[in-house]
């Protein structure tokens, strides 16, 4: 792979990879480091000409690096969730903005409580808009496992949102 190829096919996936890494790690700096590692790994990878879906390939490498990080975190017993970025909507009043930000933070925390696999599947489907087939390819799961994990994730989120709503979302 030459530099031009790399800049056209790999670098544009950085934001997607970052969002996925941030979803799983909850730390901006660590997520950025992972994306950087993925880029270097892809650059040194061989037979990339055979890779048809470069984005899905990068996502798969990201998933593997994330698993390593999460495992090492489990061993060390460290976990931190940084707050989500500020919610920007120009037409809202300051009061409404604060409320929206609070709501975002609560959903963020709620998403963080989902098991890893469910969180990954829901993120890839609802944030990145991947097909079941692509999700299966990225996470190395069969179609059925993808659907089951998505069903469970959405249902847990729905139940928790109803509970949160009772206290004012």
């Amino acid at each position: 792979m030459n530099l031009e190829d790399f800049e056209n096919r790999v670098l544009p996936a950085k934001h997607k990879l970052y969002r996925f890494a941030f979803r799983m790690l909850g730390s901006r700096e660590e997520a950025k480091d992972v994306v950087q590692d993925v880029m270097i790994k892809v650059w040194h990878g061989r037979d990339l000409a055979e890779v048809q879906n470069m984005e899905a390939w990068c996502m798969r490498i990201t998933k593997n690096l994330l698993l390593d990080r999460l495992r090492s975190r489990q061993r060390k017993g460290t976990y931190s969730i940084e707050g989500s970025d500020e919610f920007h909507q120009e037409e809202l009043t300051p009061h409404e903005k604060t409320e929206q930000n609070e709501s975002m933070k609560r959903i963020d925390q709620l998403m963080a409580t989902l098991p890893d696999k469910q969180r990954q599947v829901m993120h890839l489907r609802d944030v990145e808009g991947h097909s079941y087939h692509e999700i299966g390819e990225i996470l190395e799961l069969d179609m059925n496992q993808v659907k089951v994990n998505l069903f469970r994730a959405r249902n847990t989120v729905r139940e928790k949102l109803i509970k949160l709503n009772a206290y004012g979302l």
Binding site: L3, F6, L11, H15, R28, V35, S103
Partner: peptide, 27 residues
């Protein structure tokens, strides 16, 4: 609330304007 959250998530970008340069330099 959930769809608002998901839309916000879709717009998140890597918080480093010099990310590309850093990567190409590392390469």
């Amino acid at each position: 609330a959930l769809f608002r959250y998901l839309s916000n998530e879709k717009n998140k970008t890597i918080p480093d304007p010099f990310f590309d340069q850093a990567v190409t330099k590392q390469i």
